[in-house]
Design a protein around this nucleic acid. Structure first.
Lengths: 342, 342
DNA sequence: TTGTAAGCGTTATCAT
DNA sequence: ATGATAACGCTTACAA
């Protein structure tokens, strides 16, 4: 790395003091017209770039946001895109760190970003995260923090999240409306709120419709497509097998679909299927899959906006929560004409 | 943000000089046992964290890598994961910036990361990038730089890339081997080497097999699935329509597939189809799609390793090029039994 | 073994 | 209008 030009170099060359150079460069009012021009000309010529490190050290501000996410699947990548967009606009650079669904990595990431003196954090926790000391540490240092998507209820910071309960409800209700009588659930990791809230929605709707909730029909598959595949095989081998499956993510739904097909059953005739996230893939498989849209890009943008608001504003926003409403996209996998009912 | 503990605080509290504190903290040999213990104990108690900014300013090293990529689609996200993995291991933090396939954004990103004084750059250029001043600027400052995936031939820096020529060849040869006689090409952006090299492979193999290369059968679709859809519709409406399509990416192949199906033609019987990237989606659609694997995760890791090698090593590596061999995964979309031939 | 002081690149507060 | 100086947090000769 070559030596960068500094204001000192300019000062020396022009035989003036560095403070004058600094002023000229920043268009301060109290600097001579001549000097200003000379300084700017030379700065241009030497390709002077202000040293951000020095500035950050002085101002205690890095214009950097630490973003910690569990992975880079389609949903998160889309959210990151939204966050990035808004952050860039506002003059911030985002440091994206993947925890890989590992609690340990999440802690390491937090530690590093803390050391890097990011101006604040935007976090979606890993599926392993049940201890929140690292989050609390951020809070105790009074560093701005926004949680999104996979949030932690017990921690009081601004949040952006989907109305997952509602998502679980509309998916389940839709299956019931289509005449399915025995709906299984492929749930996500047990300690993840997004999974549990969707599950809760499922249970609530079953109850509302006087369908019996059967714990044997609920299987936790993390977010692993292969687990979903195996779980579905088991479900469909039961003596009294379910006639529909609600999967907590599209990847799980795909796993289920593969199993269903392999067992020679027809979707949606024999088995109804609904996924979650509305990833592009949902409408590309055959039959295409009914899914709950979560507006990931918009959620990302909202998150970054909230973060920046928090950074600049002075009001306490720790109770602020933006809740995005999900929307069901109905496709072939769950559309059962009356005649199709067994 | 609360005030962080500094060595000064510790020095003051212990009534010793800051240099002694500095030494004690870094386990320098020339420091009294007593002092060392006292310092460390207090540091622990006050939760002292060294200020990276100050260190970076001093050492002119930020332990940060600037990563500029055109988007976060599956392939890139997978590569990023690989890069991240290796970088983290080596003690570097990655700043991911998306150019969104925009040349302007790519320049802005470069400028910002340059200002942020990243220790080096890892870049995959946008599809709009035909001018390389920003890249040359990085070089002229002697800042380490590695190009990957979408590299620039005319620039002499270490590169990690796929053997795209080979990829184009094996895909085309496979279609010919399956008895297809008139193969169309859905190409990518015109000024992107990865697209052109694959195209070149296609032409070479056609020639080798004495099939006539027909420019009307080559359509540039950027990486836009909808364009591919429309292009395919046109191709298949020709009086003498092609009997196979080689798409430069899986997304384009999907676009083609949708068009083919919509026109009531059968894959692979009427039309053979081969994609590129081997994304998960390739094996999930029906029929599943033959595709060229590019080992994105491994490529990402190799890129980061090369970068770090460059950073630490002192030898000139500007001519170093790691070329990954692609591999064809044959699936239903192109398997035509002898009997299927028209 | 410990302390002093200069320096990394910049801004801000005083003087002049 | 310009300059000198302290400060941001840390390391590192050089002194003591």
């Amino acid at each position: 790395m070559e030596k960068q030009t500094t204001i000192k170099d300019i000062a020396l060359a022009l035989r003036i003091s560095i403070s004058t150079v600094s002023r000229a460069l920043r268009d301060a009012p109290d600097v001579g017209e001549e000097t200003r021009k000379a300084v700017k000309a030379l700065a241009e010529e030497l390709d002077y770039q202000p040293n951000k490190l020095a500035l950050s050290l002085l101002k205690k501000q890095t214009n950097t946001i630490g973003l910690i996410i569990p992975n880079l699947d389609w949903v998160l990548a889309t959210m990151v895109k939204g966050i990035d967009e808004v952050a860039l606009e506002a003059g911030y650079t985002v440091m994206v760190c993947q925890s890989n669904e590992s609690f340990g990595r999440e802690m390491v990431n937090t530690k590093r970003l803390l050391e890097s003196l990011v101006d604040g954090f935007i976090i979606s926790v890993s599926s392993e995260t049940t201890i929140f000391e690292h989050i609390k540490k951020i809070q105790s240092k009074k560093i701005p923090l926004v949680l999104f998507d996979r949030v932690i209820d017990s921690i009081s910071v601004p949040k952006v999240r989907l109305d997952n309960l509602e998502g679980g409800k509309i998916a389940t209700q839709h299956l019931i409306d289509q005449g399915y009588k025995k709906i299984a659930l492929l749930a996500g990791p047990e300690n993840l709120n997004i999974s549990n809230e969707r599950k809760e929605g499922y249970f609530q709707v079953l109850k509302l419709n006087k369908q019996k909730a059967d714990k044997n029909l609920v299987i936790h598959c993390d977010f692993n497509q292969d687990y979903a595949y195996m779980a579905t095989k088991e479900l469909l081998s039961m003596k009294n097998r379910p006639d529909a499956i609600f999967a907590i993510s599209d990847r799980l739904a795909i796993g289920a679909m593969l199993a269903i097909k392999e067992m020679g059953l027809k979707i949606p005739k024999d088995i109804g299927l609904v996924g979650f996230n509305n990833e592009p893939i949902a409408k590309l498989v055959t039959p295409n899959i009914t899914s709950v849209e979560m507006f990931a890009f918009e959620m990302g943008k909202a998150t970054a906006k909230l973060f920046i608001e928090m950074l600049h504003g002075d009001t306490d926003m720790s109770e602020k929560e933006i809740i995005v409403k999900p929307k069901l996209f109905i496709r072939e996998s769950s559309k059962r004409g009356v005649n199709d009912k067994p």
